[in-house]
Design a protein around this nucleic acid. Structure first.
Length: 801
DNA sequence: GCTTTGATCTTACCC
DNA sequence: ACGGGTAAGATCAAAGCG
């Protein structure tokens, strides 16, 4: 018998296997130890389970008896246990069914749910590895201590150390992230036509960069990529990275490279356990023992980046500015490879991309790791998991800690409900406007009013409890006590964030610890703010329409009361949206107002910012303000929209600057005029004429002819594969008819064909007039007069007085 | 047979 | 595959026009 020893490690990822011979599961934990050694810990002690929910009128013991009789025919059920738990706050009797083989859970739950007295099964859809993590309060990206026994013989896994876990992992209070090996790569395929196809087109370049500063370049032997692919997997085995990072690797590259290797009859051993990259939950590609991270997924967290190309992401994060980047369009890869000189450019391009990917990773990793730690999903899943699922996993963990059952996912019809209130703005220019924001409005309302599925009092209830909060407008009732599920969760999130921020105040803003905590408080904030949206999502396990409906109703009530109070104080209300009120600034009265609202509504509200000057059109949700530091804050207008040509966005930005900074609509008209002149002379860069739009469904499913859809058809015809979520860049060319008859993908035409008049009348003019029409400027004022070109009088011309 | 109008589809934004 | 509220353009078919 070997002596047990204690072992400390940082958890990277988990997976599980079921041994064929005895159908016993093993939980594999991949980690790094204190010495930076890679470790695989195997836990063979954990048995998964699910619950049978009993009908309340049944005698639990009788049902248990029936279940035990069934058990005789279900050999992998190891135990049955009567347990009291709660479902939506209500006590329920359950039978906890322990099942040795995780893969039999769906089958067994189906059989056992038919037993008389069993209402349904719950938690039978929690996977073995998640069950392990949740039940032992283990989250990825954290430090643990565990009792271990060395395992000598295994042979399947590539790892420095191999142990059998002999205890549950115990969480350690350690914050630092161990030194990880990160490898970034960027492949280039040679496609004779359209999108590359692995059965036809070779990989001609793979550039790799590691966070140890190692750069490598793998190139094909002209069009033979056999050695290249082999060298790539060899390099991965040799460097043995914990994290492999790329761009669109989930959507494209791993599948492509795997298929290509298969086509060439090559092994492709890039993981640590002799499996191939494989499709896993939420559509991410799993590489056993490593973390496969796709920066394209991480970039979904950056709404500021409208078109999420690698170049734009790198530019936005300050990794590498756009004008310092080589840009080669995918359409040109083949011709660049064919040409000896251009081939070098393509190689430089690919290695630059690999570096950008590593740079993006380094900017975003802390945040991703913190999110993974809070939510409990492994790093490679967290990026791919939709917001609703992230929240849900967080809630599932919280439920488990407090004896709440996880409700099943049910299909529900979509029934809309009312949301936030938006006031009509006062159009024109205003000076000194304060924006008062309710702090975390929806979470705080949910806490204050104890809004939750488990505190909801249905109108059908015979004797409604007396101590309830009654919702304005909609009348829903929620018990004041005890604290509901959402209240408990949200309070602890808000407390946790305040705590983190308190710690941050004592730290140097440049320190590693500060940045770690900053990433953490951001992750906590994201989860907190998404809870309301989750509560109103019909797909949510903890969905109750009145919960969402009541939250927004109280929100509208708060804003309306705030406005009323402001009016009583003589404050001028300019605008408001959901949780904000824009008022003419009067520091004293605003202070009074904040205090009144805090006292009367129990909600915090304070001036987040004061615009020195702000401009509104007649439209809601669109304005532009000048901040004291001289910057412009543009909201909703074309400038910030991704579906307008740059030429229009730039024009509007100039107009706003001249109107707000210089207070000169006249000079704004002049500037529009000169841009139009440039446009007509074809002096505006071609790239500034591209209009980008997202495909929100498969190309064939569109009901009407739309320009971007037509452009998508043309791309598909050329062999390009387009999927939902792809952005199509197109330009409008000269000719007759509807726009969709004159549209071309920007890669499939040239400047000569472009219809510049379309850009004048349908892009630049509307964007400019959106602002200038408020000042009485008409279309003809911009199109007819030419003040910058012609002096208006002879005196002007001769420089007379 | 043409233009005008309004409903509908579509996208991207705000909070 | 987290919510509702909103602006706006392009298309398409019906209405208007005599």
């Amino acid at each position: 018998m070997q002596a047990l020893s204690k072992y400390r490690f940082w958890l990277l990822d988990v997976n599980y296997e079921v041994r064929d011979e005895d159908r016993k599961p093993e939980l594999w934990m991949w980690g790094i130890d204190e010495e930076g050694k890679r470790v695989l810990l195997i836990d063979r002690s954990f048995t998964t389970y699910f619950y049978l929910i009993l009908n309340s009128e049944e005698d639990p013991k009788a049902v248990l008896e029936r279940a035990q009789q069934q058990k005789a025919e279900l050999p992998f059920i190891v135990d049955l246990e009567l347990t009291q738990l709660r479902l939506f706050g209500e006590p329920v009797c359950t039978i906890k069914v322990f099942c040795q083989d995780p893969e039999l859970v769906p089958k067994y739950s189906g059989i056992l749910s038919k037993i008389k007295g069993v209402q349904k099964c719950l938690e039978d859809d929690v996977r073995y590895s998640m069950r392990y993590l949740i039940d032992n309060d283990v989250t990825p990206c954290s430090w643990y201590e565990v009792d271990v026994e060395e395992l000598v013989e295994h042979g399947k896994a590539q790892t420095d150390k191999l142990y059998i876990a002999k205890s549950m992992p115990r969480r350690l209070e350690r914050e630092e992230i161990p030194p990880l090996r990160v490898l970034s790569f960027f492949p280039i395929y040679y496609a004779s036509k359209g999108a590359p196809k692995p059965e036809r087109d070779p990989v001609v370049i793979i550039s790799t960069v590691t966070n140890k500063g190692e750069k490598r370049l793998l190139t094909a032997n002209n069009y033979d990529d056999k050695e290249l692919i082999q060298s790539f997997s060899e390099q991965i085995r040799e460097f043995d990275p914990e994290i492999i990072v790329g761009y669109e690797t989930n959507k494209q590259h791993w599948q492509y490279l795997t298929d290509r290797a298969r086509k060439l009859s090559l092994d492709f051993p890039v993981d640590r356990a002799r499996t191939l990259p494989h499709l896993s939950v939420y559509g991410h590609i799993s590489i056993t023992g490593r973390i496969n991270l796709d920066v394209a997924d991480l970039a979904e967290e950056l709404p500021e980046v409208k078109v999420k190309t690698l170049e734009n992401i790198a530019d936005f994060l300050g990794v590498r500015s756009l004008d310092e980047q080589i840009v080669i369009d995918e359409i040109d890869f083949a011709s660049f490879w064919d040409d000896a000189e251009k081939r070098q450019q393509l190689i430089r391009f690919s290695s630059e991309k690999a570096e950008c990917i590593l740079g993006i990773f380094e900017k975003m990793f802390n945040y991703a790791a913190e999110l993974s730690k809070i939510v409990g999903l492994p790093l490679d899943q967290i990026g791919k998991a939709a917001v609703g699922f992230r929240i849900e996993w967080y809630l599932i963990r919280e439920a488990h800690k407090t004896g709440e059952l996880v409700p099943e996912r049910v299909e529900r019809p979509y029934v809309p409900y009312a949301g936030g209130i938006v006031l009509k703005p006062k159009p024109g220019i205003h000076e000194n406007v304060a924006v008062l924001d309710f702090k975390s409005m929806y979470p705080n309302i949910m806490i204050d009013k104890n809004i939750s599925p488990d505190t909801y009092v249905s109108p059908s209830e015979a004797q409604p409890p007396s101590d309830v909060n009654i919702t304005p407008e909609v009348g829903h009732m929620f018990r004041k006590e005890p604290p509901g599920f959402y209240k408990r969760v949200l309070s602890s999130l808000i407390t946790a964030r305040d705590e983190i921020r308190r710690k941050m105040k004592r730290l140097d803003t440049e320190s590693m610890e500060y940045r770690l905590l900053d990433a953490r408080q951001k992750a906590v904030k994201v989860i907190t703010n998404a809870a309301y949206g989750y509560a109103g999502w019909i797909g949510a396990r903890w969905f109750r329409k009145p919960v969402a409906e009541a939250t927004t109703a109280w929100g509208r009530d708060a804003v309306m009361r705030g406005i009323e109070a402001a009016g009583n104080l003589g404050l001028d209300i300019i605008y408001g949206d959901t949780d904000s009120i824009f008022i003419k600034h009067d520091p004293e009265k605003v202070e009074t107002l904040s205090k009144m609202i805090l006292e009367n509504l129990g909600l915090e509200i304070k001036p987040e910012k004061v615009y020195t000057r702000i401009f509104f059109t007649e439209a809601k949700k669109r304005y532009c303000g000048l901040l004291p530091d001289g910057t412009l804050d543009t909201v909703g207008l074309e400038v910030v929209r991704g579906d307008w040509a740059n030429v229009a966005k730039n024009t509007q930005e100039h107009v706003l600057e001249l109107v707000l900074r210089e207070r000169s609509p006249r000079r704004a008209v002049d500037s529009v005029h000169s841009i139009i002149a440039d446009l007509r002379k074809q002096q505006v860069p071609y790239r500034d004429l591209i209009i980008w739009k997202t495909l929100t469904k498969p190309v064939s499913e569109y009901e009407v002819n739309a320009p971007h859809v037509e452009a998508a058809w043309m791309l598909e015809k050329e062999g390009w594969a387009l999927t939902v979520g792809d952005k199509v860049g197109y330009v409008i060319t000269q000719g007759k008819g509807r726009l969709y008859e004159r549209v071309k993908p920007y890669t499939m035409t040239s400047y000569e064909e472009v219809d510049t008049e379309y850009y004048v009348t349908n892009q630049v003019l509307p964007a400019a007039l959106r602002i200038l029409s408020t000042f009485g400027v008409k279309e003809k004022d911009i199109l007819t007069s030419e003040p910058t070109e012609k002096p208006r009088t002879l005196a002007d011309f001769f420089g007379g007085k």
